[in-house]
């Protein structure tokens, strides 16, 4: 059992994961229907007359009009998804985009989460450093013996370890 869980087996597991992920991510997704494409595009566009809903979700007439416009563009087959979204955004100005731009003040919505994450990780790192510095006590041989004795009495008890 000890050899079964040794590092070469873990390496093998890692290789299997990489191989499976490679197969899964590089093969063809299969055909998308026109409706799939329309759904995907309209999920990125806000209904201009609704309460924060996307064109995909909304059943309002303005959303219906944009959905029809997207359907026509998809049927024509000349524009990419981004170009279709861009043309709708040009018509209605940026306020129909559900994803804020990464420029100007709008970029704050992207930058702040990353900044908060970085600060949190830095704070955690600093806390662990401080704790490590403060935790200078060493377990005595009596302590270690006590722990081993108690664990030996019930080695399967993991609630407490």
């Amino acid at each position: 059992m000890k050899y079964l869980k040794s590092w070469p087996v873990w390496m093998l597991m890692g290789l299997i994961v990489v191989a499976l992920l490679t197969v899964g991510t590089t093969r063809d997704n299969g055909p998308l229907t026109q409706s799939d494409r329309i759904d995907s595009i309209t999920k990125h566009i806000a209904c201009p007359t609704c309460d924060g809903e996307s064109v995909y979700v909304s059943r309002a007439s303005a959303a219906e009009a944009i959905r029809n416009q997207v359907a026509r563009d998809v049927s024509a087959g000349t524009l990419t998804d981004d170009e279709i979204i861009g043309s709708i955004a040009n018509t209605f100005k940026a306020k129909v985009l559900l994803v804020p731009r990464a420029t100007g003040v709008d970029s704050l919505v992207w930058i702040l989460p990353i900044a908060v994450l970085v600060c949190s990780i830095a704070g955690l790192w600093a806390a662990f450093r401080r704790w490590r510095r403060d935790n200078s006590g060493e377990a005595s041989s009596d302590d270690v013996a006590l722990v081993e004795k108690l664990l030996a009495e019930d080695p399967t008890d993991e609630d407490n370890v």
Binding site: S54, A94, K95, V99
Partner: peptide, 10 residues
């Protein structure tokens, strides 16, 4: 003083 929508894709 401008309107912006932040939705599902974000």
């Amino acid at each position: 003083n401008r309107q912006l929508v932040v939705g599902e894709p974000f």
